[in-house]
């Protein structure tokens, strides 16, 4: 399996937050979602991939090449869409595109024009006149027009209306109809990732918790529910988080089959959504 991105022991220190020992691979030809609560380190990882911030340790390989030593080479194959696209405000879209085009060997001007038409954007419109959704579309058009092998997006769906969100996600799916194309996007909107991601990497407080196939995660994780005082987290194999209410206890487990074997009819077993995972894990196994 070829990997579009290989991240090994990546490290970045900030005051009050450290990304520690991040290691995972993004296989070519699939959509990977980077998920985690706000401030967990998703944007940090994406910025480190693009070398927008300097890393304090570790290694990033893109298409098998070191991202620092081959910076222009790898960036020529990446379409980057930031959460808030920023371009010079008083410049028309067509001029921005023409300024960027020469940097990409595979730039397809007619494809770009078609995309602009499809997105209902005029090349003579000035960037500042665009709504947030239109800015995203423009940014996406630029990324697609040079046939990027890797589409990298940071919180692409935040702030978009539901219709465009759906269209955007389906478009990501159609990008990987070509098995040499890869998509990595970060989001805290778990339902979007559930819809469209093939793999999920979960990051929490600067550490990678897991990096797996989405369907596997949703099949093996589960929430064990029982009345109060019936269960303790310690009774549940692979317990990862707990919530107590007046009516009962809910325990997240990463192996619901083992839990079922161990506890049988003593508890109820629910599917865990990505949102559940994020929620329960941030509460931890402690007394909540």
């Amino acid at each position: 399996m070829t990997n579009a991105i290989e991240i090994k022991r990546l490290r970045k220190e900030y005051k009050g937050f450290t990304l520690e020992d991040a290691t995972f691979d993004v296989p070519e030809g699939y959509i990977m979602g980077l998920i985690g609560p706000n401030g967990a380190g998703k944007t940090t990882i994406i910025k480190l991939i693009m070398n927008l911030i300097r890393r304090d340790g570790g290694e990033v390989r893109l298409f098998g090449l070191d991202n620092l030593r081959h910076e222009p080479e790898v960036k020529a194959r990446i379409g980057f869409v930031y959460d808030v696209p920023r371009f010079h405000e008083d410049v028309p879209l067509g001029v921005i595109a023409s300024a960027i085009a020469p940097f990409y060997v595979k730039w397809d001007a007619s494809l770009f024009r078609r995309l602009l038409e499809e997105f209902e954007l005029g090349p003579k419109t000035m960037f500042k006149k665009l709504s947030h959704g239109q800015k995203m579309k423009f940014s996406l058009a630029l990324a697609l027009a040079h046939d990027a092998d890797l589409i990298l997006m940071d919180e692409p769906t935040a702030g978009l209306d539901p219709v465009f969100r759906f269209e955007l996600l389906e478009r990501l799916r159609s990008i990987i109809q070509n098995e040499r194309k890869t998509v990595l996007f970060s989001s805290h909107i778990t339902t979007d990732l559930e819809r469209v991601a093939d793999h999920i990497t979960f990051i929490h407080e600067g550490r990678i918790v897991f990096s797996e196939a989405k369907d596997d995660i949703l099949e093996t994780w589960g929430v064990v529910k029982a009345g109060p005082d019936v269960l303790q987290p310690a009774d549940v194999p692979e317990s990862r988080g707990v919530k107590r209410t007046d009516y009962g206890i809910e325990i997240l487990t990463s192996d619901v089959a083992a839990a079922r074997d161990a506890l049988g009819g003593r508890a109820v077993y629910d599917k865990a959504t990505l949102e559940d995972i994020m929620f329960y894990m941030s509460r931890g196994n402690g007394h909540a």
Partner: peptide, 18 residues
């Protein structure tokens, strides 16, 4: 100052260039 005002440094540094 324009780069600062419009915060387009991300654009520049995302381009295939050192």
């Amino acid at each position: 100052g324009r780069e600062d005002r419009f915060r387009t440094s991300v654009l520049l540094c995302s381009l295939p260039a050192r």
